[in-house]
Amino acid sequence: DIEITTNGEEDAKRVIKELQKRNLEYHIEVHGNQWVIKVR
């Protein structure tokens, strides 16, 4: 598993777009303004 910590929603959406392009499965956890994306 890979864990990507982003700085808020805009940053997270940019990362998610890339993950979707590669058809990767991911899970999002929001901790305040930090979005942690866990990639399987």
Rank of each mutant, 00 (worst) to 15 (best):
D1V: 14
D1C: 14
D1Q: 11
D1I: 15
D1M: 15
D1G: 12
I2F: 15
I2L: 13
I2H: 09
I2A: 05
I2W: 15
I2P: 03
I2Y: 15
I2C: 14
E3M: 14
E3I: 15
E3N: 07
E3V: 15
E3F: 15
E3Y: 15
I4Y: 09
I4T: 02
I4Q: 01
I4D: 01
I4N: 01
T5P: 05
T5R: 15
T5I: 15
T5M: 11
T5F: 14
T5Q: 08
T6K: 03
T6L: 14
T6S: 04
T6I: 15
T6M: 11
T6V: 15
T6P: 05
T6F: 11
N7F: 14
N7V: 10
N7M: 13
N7K: 09
N7A: 09
N7I: 12
N7W: 15
G8C: 11
E9S: 07
E9T: 05
E10G: 06
E10T: 07
E10Q: 09
E10H: 08
E10C: 12
E10V: 08
D11E: 15
D11R: 08
D11Q: 13
D11P: 04
D11F: 10
D11A: 14
A12T: 06
A12V: 06
A12R: 03
A12K: 03
K13I: 12
K13Q: 12
K13G: 06
K13C: 13
K13W: 15
K13N: 11
K13V: 09
K13H: 10
R14C: 13
R14H: 06
R14D: 05
R14G: 04
R14L: 10
R14N: 07
V15A: 04
V15M: 06
V15W: 12
V15Y: 08
V15C: 10
I16K: 01
I16W: 02
I16G: 02
I16R: 02
I16D: 00
I16M: 08
I16L: 06
K17R: 14
K17G: 08
K17A: 14
K17I: 12
K17S: 11
K17D: 09
K17N: 08
K17E: 12
K17H: 10
E18T: 07
E18H: 08
E18L: 14
E18C: 15
E18D: 07
E18R: 08
E18S: 08
L19D: 00
L19M: 04
L19N: 00
L19P: 00
L19S: 01
Q20S: 07
Q20I: 14
Q20H: 07
Q20Y: 05
Q20T: 09
Q20C: 08
Q20E: 14
Q20R: 13
K21A: 13
K21S: 10
K21I: 10
K21V: 07
K21N: 10
K21M: 12
K21L: 13
K21D: 10
R22H: 11
R22I: 05
R22V: 04
R22Y: 13
R22C: 13
R22G: 04
N23Y: 05
N23A: 08
L24S: 03
L24F: 06
L24E: 03
L24P: 01
L24K: 05
E25F: 12
E25W: 12
E25L: 13
E25T: 14
E25N: 10
E25M: 12
E25V: 13
E25G: 08
E25P: 11
Y26T: 02
Y26F: 13
Y26N: 00
Y26I: 05
Y26W: 08
H27T: 15
H27P: 00
H27K: 12
H27V: 15
H27N: 09
H27A: 11
H27C: 13
I28F: 04
I28V: 13
I28P: 00
I28R: 00
I28H: 01
I28A: 03
E29N: 04
E29S: 09
E29C: 11
E29V: 10
E29Y: 10
E29F: 10
E29W: 06
V30Q: 09
V30H: 07
V30M: 08
V30D: 02
V30A: 04
H31A: 07
H31K: 12
H31Y: 10
H31F: 11
G32F: 05
G32N: 07
G32A: 04
G32D: 07
N33Y: 08
N33Q: 09
N33T: 10
N33D: 12
N33K: 07
N33H: 08
Q34D: 05
Q34G: 04
Q34S: 09
Q34P: 01
Q34Y: 12
Q34A: 07
Q34N: 10
Q34C: 15
Q34V: 14
Q34F: 13
W35N: 01
W35H: 02
W35L: 05
W35F: 06
W35Y: 07
W35G: 01
V36I: 14
V36D: 00
V36Q: 03
V36H: 04
V36T: 06
V36G: 00
V36S: 02
I37A: 00
I37W: 00
I37T: 00
I37L: 03
I37E: 00
I37V: 04
I37K: 00
I37D: 00
I37R: 00
K38G: 01
K38Q: 05
K38N: 04
K38S: 07
K38F: 13
K38I: 15
K38H: 11
V39R: 01
V39L: 08
V39K: 00
V39P: 01
V39F: 09
R40P: 07
R40H: 14
R40K: 13
R40G: 06
R40W: 10
R40M: 13
R40F: 14
R40L: 14
R40S: 09
